[in-house]
Design a protein around this nucleic acid. Structure first.
Lengths: 236, 236
DNA sequence: CTATCATAATTTGTATGATAAATATACAAC
DNA sequence: GTTGTATATTTATCATACAAATTATGATAG
């Protein structure tokens, strides 16, 4: 039997989250001071500070020297189940997207030119799963990836499929650890959905050039959005 | 204008990530000790510990009491899975070539646009090795692959490089295990060399469009030749 | 020589106290 | 109402110390 020994700092991390939830704290509210928290939990300031570091890195709070720690998360109900940070290099994500653009632009074109009715039906299904995920207000990363993979499959080139799947999986991992706050911007979601629809339509009509162009635009926009959110994170 | 004021702990966080990346640390490798890190960056242990807390919470490292901090996740580039090679099928070789065309056309374009003088020198060297292999009447597969890989490297996109290398080595294996190797290639060697030279020239001049076009022609020709020799083998 | 085990050294985890720097607050001056 | 200033509060960092866990070392037995 293995006794679970969690670090005090991480226990404090949980307790503070719990506290925020319990007290129904709103964005802008001030947390108790580090001194108060350390007395509250019967520990020293050190683990409290480390817990607050993680909280801040996860975007839940902001600590300002002299000003205390302030709750930032907009809604505590869909509070972070999992901590998400950026530890992946921005440059690597951009390189990843660049490579995806190269491969998937052609994959979309080939899908339009070679895809069977069956292939296109599957793509359509994936598109609708994206729609319903959006309707449920979920993130929908998995559905997004599935849509792109389905298009690759319609190219009927297994090597290409494998390469695309490889990159999309990597991308999902990268995004999971790098995207922190810019999830749920509905207007952007609508735009993404519209882009997906345009890609699908072009494929359905068998218009390879158009499909490639739409895919290119779609991924280029993803690239722009990523850069933009990164710049924002830098200035905060 | 907003004066940039990043906390030391977060600067340390970035520096450690940078260090892991720079040193190409693999999962399982041990980071320097907290003491060493604090001396390295000229700060106390406190911010170093807070940075490590965030790193650990993000899943990049694990810190064990007494055991040091070890890297857990690697950079994206190292995560790319290789396509395992099963058996050589003509169709698969064509699929492989098709995917290579997609990737390497763009790789050549990027090489022309982003390649440094150094990069181009290396490409030139590889080209000359192809020439000398031809002079020695050797097959020169390795040299051919090295030439293509060097071009990919000049794109300065590690993900793209890895993807291209993956495919070129796969291609080399495929050709090697394919029974019909060296099928009537010798007379086309001069042509292949000329194609390589045209690619190099376009890259050297920084003409991206041209470089892409030449690469496209080159690999398309390889495709045609493969098809042709396969048909011949069928009819014999 | 090898393997095992006790011991020492190293390293992280936590505690404590002190100082610097930024912010918040209260209050006076205009 | 606004501005400025003094004071108190609070976070950010430093320095040191010790506990706890792991790793390295070396001795001993076979």
């Amino acid at each position: 039997m293995k006794i679970e020994r969690r670090k005090v700092s991480m226990q404090v991390f949980d307790r503070i989250k719990e506290y925020i939830h319990k007290e129904k704290m709103q964005p802008g509210d001030r947390l108790p001071t580090e001194k108060q928290l350390s007395e509250m939990f019967g520990v020293s300031r050190t683990p409290v500070r480390e817990a607050l570091s993680v909280l801040e890195a996860s975007g839940l709070t902001v600590s300002k020297q002299g000003g205390g720690s302030i709750v930032q998360a907009a809604s505590l109900t869909n509070l972070i189940e999992e901590i998400q940070f950026e530890f992946v290099d921005t440059e690597e994500v951009l390189n990843l997207l660049e490579t995806r653009i190269i491969l998937e632009t052609e994959a979309a074109r080939l899908a339009a030119e070679r895809g069977t009715a069956d292939d296109k039906l599957i793509i359509k299904k994936k598109l609708e799963e994206i729609r319903s995920s959006q309707h449920d207000n979920r993130v929908g990363d998995k559905e997004d990836i599935a849509f792109h993979n389905a298009i690759a499959k319609a190219s009927h080139n297994p090597i290409l499929v494998h390469s695309v799947e490889n990159l999309t999986t990597l991308y999902e991992k990268a995004i999971r650890f790098s995207l922190k706050k810019n999830m749920g911007i509905s207007e952007k979601r609508a735009q993404v959905l519209s882009e997906h629809e345009r890609i699908y339509t072009a494929i359905r009509l068998g218009n390879g050039e158009q499909a490639g162009e739409e895919m290119y635009q779609h991924l280029s926009n993803a690239c722009k959005k990523f850069k933009h959110s990164f710049d924002q994170a830098l200035n905060s």
